[in-house]
């Protein structure tokens, strides 16, 4: 409760009164900023993987909020939820919202990837099989050029594994010059889904590329993203991709000691 002195004239007489009032919601003054933040903006995109162009649109969000976006090296701009944005090249897009009362939202980061169709005629074998609940469209899911969202529970985008090693063997229709392999993966610690620990690419039983992924830290956000493995530039017809997960979920997590889930939705080669 707070108090202020106020005065009014009543029939020519000045009356001074002590007025008590309570503060607004959340135990704060209404004109101060809330302890709550805006939710991260919802962005609709026809596909995070595209061959010609991607069209992005935004939701309106909380009343009074302002949408902002920034493309990799460009300056921040104000977005309008009624005007979609067109993207024609591989881009990283950041979107956030501000409001005079609520805290600024978290930033939604989207990686839009212009993809090719080099794998469309390839045969991909998967060992072991994904878990029964998350088989997607098996091999087809890996080369359909549709990036799965963070909602892995619905649709046929994601293949889910709970094992320490997954192997893909790719047989291309024709020998092709390559320098990069990319793997679409999911990170969702709340659902016990972790990125792999290491990805190794071989051809003719020789390692041509390998990356180690940093150890997961508590608080890292859920994301549908890509892991890129640069490979020795050359002409290849067959590739073996070995994906090793963490042996167990880290100590800081509720599921410590058990094998994490691995979710993969897409394979790309360049």
């Amino acid at each position: 409760m707070k108090y202020v002195l106020r005065w009014i004239y009543f029939k020519g007489i000045l009356i001074i009164v002590l007025v008590g009032y309570t503060s607004g919601a959340f135990g704060q003054e209404n004109n101060q900023q809330s302890t709550f933040a805006l939710a991260a903006p919802v962005v609709y995109v026809d596909s995070l993987l595209f061959t010609k162009q991607a069209l992005l649109s935004f939701t309106e969000g909380e009343k009074g909020s302002v949408l902002h976006y920034q493309l990799a090296d460009d300056k921040p701009r104000t977005a309008n939820h009624k005007k979609p944005i067109e993207i024609k090249t591989t881009s990283t897009l950041k979107v956030w919202s501000t409001h005079p009362y609520y805290q600024t939202s978290d930033t939604t980061t989207l990686k839009l990837t212009k993809a090719n169709s080099l794998l469309s005629d390839a045969k991909i074998s998967i060992e072991p099989e994904p878990k029964a609940a998350y088989r997607g469209n098996k091999e087809a899911s890996l080369k359909d050029l549709i990036k799965g969202t963070t909602n892995f529970r619905t649709g046929n985008d994601w293949l889910g594994f709970q094992t320490t090693e997954v192997n893909f063997t790719i047989n291309l229709k024709e020998p092709t010059t390559l320098y990069l392999v990319s793997l679409g993966v999911l990170r969702d610690y709340g659902s016990w889904v972790f990125l792999p620990k290491q990805i190794t690419v071989e051809s003719n039983k020789k390692i041509i590329g390998q990356v180690n992924i940093q150890i997961p830290k508590e608080g890292e956000k859920t994301a549908s993203t890509f892991l890129h493995v640069p490979i020795k530039k050359g002409t290849y017809k067959e590739l073996q991709i070995q994906i090793n997960t963490l042996p167990t979920i880290p100590q800081w997590h509720l599921g410590q000691g058990t094998i994490p889930w691995l979710f993969i939705d897409e394979l790309l080669i360049n």
Binding site: V4, R6, I8, V17, V19, Y21, T22, G24, A25, F26, Q28, N30, N31, S34, K63, Y101
Partner: peptide, 12 residues
């Protein structure tokens, strides 16, 4: 007018 400032606005 005396009590106008004690009203709750839409924020929060």
């Amino acid at each position: 007018p005396l009590f106008a400032q004690a009203r709750t606005n839409e924020n929060g």
